[in-house]
């Protein structure tokens, strides 16, 4: 057991490194592949040829995958969903964490149920309801469902920010003569700014990723979002792996960039959320 004090930390560092590689290597491989011509990619004897480096796959994206259009569609849907989810979740979080009233527990429980609600269950009825109300085949149908499934979880993500504000801060402000709206605007909203970042990140990522509803609700090619556009490339008879790698990199890039910026708040928000 003499070696233990030294060996254990080394072991742990190696395991940590292994874990980071398991997550990271597939992405690195995808990025490397996107700079190779398809002819090299589908050659069983060649894995990678540094001298065959090319930007051709990226250059082909706008013309062959109509990439700019579906990129724009995804942006519009994700931004609109985020814009609606933030105020909804913010208000609900205030209600659940900073006030007390009969029925509050029920509100919280209903929000919890939505986290684990099977989206597939709603697919058929929503298809019918949306088609009757003319919402089918519009971005609105996606935006509505993105908010439904991301706002309740965002409420939970913001728990840490809301519960970390000392109790009684509203009372103190009220004694100084501030109205409810002033309290919210001047005290709570600035204090929960990181919570807004967390909600925004979560909703944006959720919307950017959403596949199930987008695959059924959008019919026109001109409306389709990135996951659906990419699936169109995947299911073609012969797959153009080079083009697809480039499309996948470009699809992942915006959320990865967003997360690189906001991820720290996100991770700290959730982990701090648990500590009282």
């Amino acid at each position: 057991m003499a070696a233990r004090p030294l060996a254990a930390p080394v072991m742990r560092n190696l395991l940590t490194l292994l874990m980071l590689l398991v997550i990271g290597l597939p992405f690195i491989w995808m990025i490397l592949s996107s700079f190779q011509p398809t002819s090299v990619l589908i050659n069983p004897r060649e894995l990678f040829r540094p001298d065959a480096f090319t930007l051709e796959n990226y250059a082909r994206l706008p013309s062959e995958a109509n990439f700019l259009l579906i990129l724009r569609n995804s942006l519009v849907v994700a931004l609109a969903s985020t814009a609606i989810a933030i105020p909804l979740a913010l208000l609900a979080a205030y209600s659940v964490y900073r006030t007390r009233y009969r029925g509050r527990q029920t509100v919280y429980l209903l929000l919890l149920v939505v986290y684990v609600f099977p989206g597939i269950l709603l697919l058929a009825p929503l298809f019918k309801l949306f088609s009757m109300s003319g919402v089918l085949n519009t971005w609105l149908s996606l935006i509505i469902m993105n908010v439904t499934f991301s706002a309740p979880f965002s409420v939970w993500l913001m728990r840490g920010f809301f519960t970390s504000i000392p109790h009684g801060i509203e009372e103190a402000a009220a004694i100084d003569g501030a109205t409810d709206m002033q309290i919210l605007r001047r005290i709570i909203v600035p204090l929960t700014a990181p919570g807004i970042v967390v909600t925004g990140t979560y909703t944006f990522v959720y919307s950017w990723t959403e596949f199930l509803f987008a695959s059924v609700f959008l019919i026109d090619d001109s409306l389709k979002t990135l996951p659906i556009g990419l699936e169109g490339l995947v299911t073609q008879y012969s797959i153009d792996w080079g083009l697809l790698s480039a499309a996948a990199v470009m699809t992942a890039l915006p959320v990865v960039a967003l997360f690189a910026f906001a991820g720290r708040y996100f991770v700290e928000g959730v982990t701090a959320g648990a500590s009282k």
Binding site: L91, Y94, R98, R100, R102, L111, L121, V147, T148
Partner: peptide, 26 residues
């Protein structure tokens, strides 16, 4: 009760939203 009226008011939007998009289709 602590700010009960405000609490109910603020819970209303998300509850209405979920009623229309989850309870109704359910």
């Amino acid at each position: 009760p602590v700010r009960a009226r405000l609490g109910r008011l603020f819970a209303a939007p998300i509850m209405i939203w979920l009623a229309l998009t989850i309870a109704l289709p359910l």
